[in-house]
């Protein structure tokens, strides 16, 4: 199989206007992944499936991941006026990288026997623009797994033939796998509570132990 960088070059040649970026994997023994922009990802996926030397016809795994807003603290050197003279001072700057949701696809080739190739697509943010492009028209096996990402993360897949909740019931309102999901307070009786459970139980002890 070609390396991820070579595949990126061929993708850019085959699908003009595609936004593709190599995301390195901190684990050096594993391979990096390709992040693709939403506008042309469907054409890129079709190329990956149909190109004779790649033939990625098997989408093994479709995963959703939730990344929260992250604050980075960077130290920068800046020239400021101190007592009338210019000096270089180190200051810390806070940079916030907005959170996003992403879907990660692991592709293998059953015909040629190689793989995996990891591709990703990311939403713009976690709040109001949670839309991704569904790759179910290319790989039918992604159907149920994309529905699960919709159910548990709240990502809407455009082009999915049947997007509805799959694991939770129809009237459920939350997206449970998100990192900021809070469970309903389901008072669990515990004879010797401690730590978190004790704190939750104390709220109920006030009414004589009944919630």
């Amino acid at each position: 199989m070609e390396t991820v960088e070579q595949i990126k070059v061929r993708l850019e040649a085959a699908v003009p206007g595609l936004e593709v970026e190599v995301i390195p994997n901190p684990n050096s023994a594993e391979q990096p992944s390709l992040r693709m922009g939403l506008t042309h990802i469907l054409a890129a996926a079709r190329f990956l499936r149909d190109d004779p030397s790649l033939r990625f016809d098997y989408a093994s795994n479709v995963t959703g991941v939730d990344w929260l807003d992250q604050t980075f603290q960077e130290r920068q050197r800046q020239r400021v006026l101190v007592d009338g003279a210019e000096r270089e001072v180190e200051i810390t700057v806070q940079r916030i990288r907005p959170g996003y949701l992403e879907a990660i696809y692991h592709l293998y080739s059953m015909e040629l026997g190689h793989g995996p190739l990891v591709i990703r697509q990311r939403t713009a943010n976690r709040t109001d623009q949670c839309r991704l492009v569904s790759l179910t028209p290319i790989w039918r096996g992604a159907e149920f797994q994309e529905r699960e990402i919709y159910d548990l993360y709240g990502v809407v897949f455009e082009g999915h033939p049947d997007l509805r909740r799959i694991l939770m019931w129809e009237g459920f309102q939350d997206f449970p796998m998100r990192k900021d999901y809070v469970e309903p307070d389901d008072y669990e009786y515990e004879p010797t509570p401690h730590d978190l459970v004790l704190e939750k139980a104390r709220l109920h002890y006030g009414h004589g132990g009944r919630s």
């Binding site: 309903p184 389901d186 009786y189 004879p191 004790l198 104390r202 002890y205 004589g208 132990g209 009944r210």
Partner: peptide, 16 residues
Amino acid sequence: PCNRELWNPPAIQRDE
């Protein structure tokens, strides 16, 4: 969330 007539866990008062 539960059936109040059936499920009444005992209250354990802890002195904290």
